[in-house]
Design a binder for these strands. Structure first.
Lengths: 212, 212
DNA sequence: ACGGAAGTCAACCGTTCGATTGATGCCGAG
DNA sequence: CTCGGCATCAATCGAACGGTTGACTTCCGT
């Protein structure tokens, strides 16, 4: 028997942390060494403690979000593996997490055994992806998926609040003509042909959030 | 000391059930008698077991959702108290839950002590609402909040997929004129003046879902 | 039986949107 | 340096949208 895997739980929901802790506490091969409610706390813990695997929630209310935290963690000198654990299965979340250096991406409704197995895989440095997650990544790799420029995302965000082209132009201090140009590009990249469709597919892909 | 409160946990996430169980197992005044992954399972349990308080998640993947389950439960002969426990804080969810007979409405990111206290209140038949939840209910009561007709919701749902008036009319086998009339009513009721704004406020109020 | 809410349709009109074409300046990679 | 991507703006034109008014039917509740 080796020494147990040292885990850090990062989630803003006390209940979820409690559930994970219970799941891992009852095994002899894992040891939860700390919990954190957001990314900042997680980094503090890592500065002081040795950890093999971080279980990371994305989208944490208030504090540093999971993707940023993951990026920071994986750029540490001797980074632990980061296993992302979330309820959301949108393209943007998955891609952002993987691109930020996450070792795995599991959904919170996974059965406990899968979670435990994913943690072990992550500790070995292997990639662990939930069933649907892998498929989405493949899709993404097949279609290069034109990425939106920062400005375009900004337009999209305001568009998502129901602004007209004129309001949009005033909000951003640009002409209405420019707004239209951006919109044409956005429509192209999203593969839609009107603003309402743009909003919903943007929400689906996680480019913007429904309620901010 | 009385006999402990008998609890039923209903949530489709094993991790959450585990966390709740851990929280309540360590107290002598509560006893988790069963868990269920959706509404149907919950009803089966209640048919066979005596329960004081049901902790109910809304929005459960696949099975019977929480609101329907709550409605069924509260119409039982001697219903247990239903304490809704969810991550969503939208008007529609809250209202639907309360209207379905929920005794309380708590958010999953609440600290454990509040949850425990809410369970105890629920058992006494008292209403337990999370901090922001109460405020929303008051808002709702102040403004009567014109409710949308079924047809209007249907229009809104399709609108949320980016359809134009023409597509909308073809989809519903009505004339474009009728679609416009419905839209005008929807705009009125939602207090907006264009379709994009209608979509986002509808999503915010939980009338439609972002990703279906 | 009557009133009201809901759903349907029509015609009109001004505004906005979407598409197209073309142009400018900036910046960073090769 | 040059090319491409990004952001900016302009002008045009047909299509779509938003507001308004008015009208007809059905259905429900009092």
């Amino acid at each position: 028997m080796n020494e147990p895997l040292r885990l850090l739980l990062v989630d803003d929901h006390p209940v979820v942390r409690r559930g994970l802790r219970a799941m891992f506490d009852e095994r002899s091969d894992t040891l939860v060494v700390a919990e954190a409610a957001d990314g900042r706390e997680a980094l503090e813990v890592l500065a002081a403690t040795s950890v093999h695997v971080v279980l990371m929630d994305l989208r944490m209310g208030g504090g540093m979000d999971g993707v940023t935290a993951t990026r920071s963690i994986t750029s540490l000198p001797e980074p632990p593996a980061v296993l992302v654990l979330t309820v959301y299965e949108t393209d943007a979340d998955i891609l952002a997490a993987v691109e930020a250096g996450a070792t795995g991406y599991m959904l919170k409704d996974s059965p406990p055994e899968q979670l435990v197995e994913a943690v072990r895989s992550a500790a070995r440095g292997e990639t662990a992806l939930g069933p649907n997650v892998a498929a989405r990544l493949f899709d993404r790799l097949r279609g290069p998926e034109e990425s939106l420029s920062p400005r375009e995302v900004e337009i999209l965000r305001l568009l998502g609040q129901g602004l007209s082209n004129r309001s949009l132009s005033r909000e951003l201090f640009i002409s209405e003509a420019t707004v239209k140009t951006h919109l044409v590009h956005i429509f192209d990249k999203l593969g839609v042909d009107n603003r309402t469709a743009a909003i919903t597919t943007a929400i689906q892909r996680g480019i913007i959030r429904a309620v901010q």
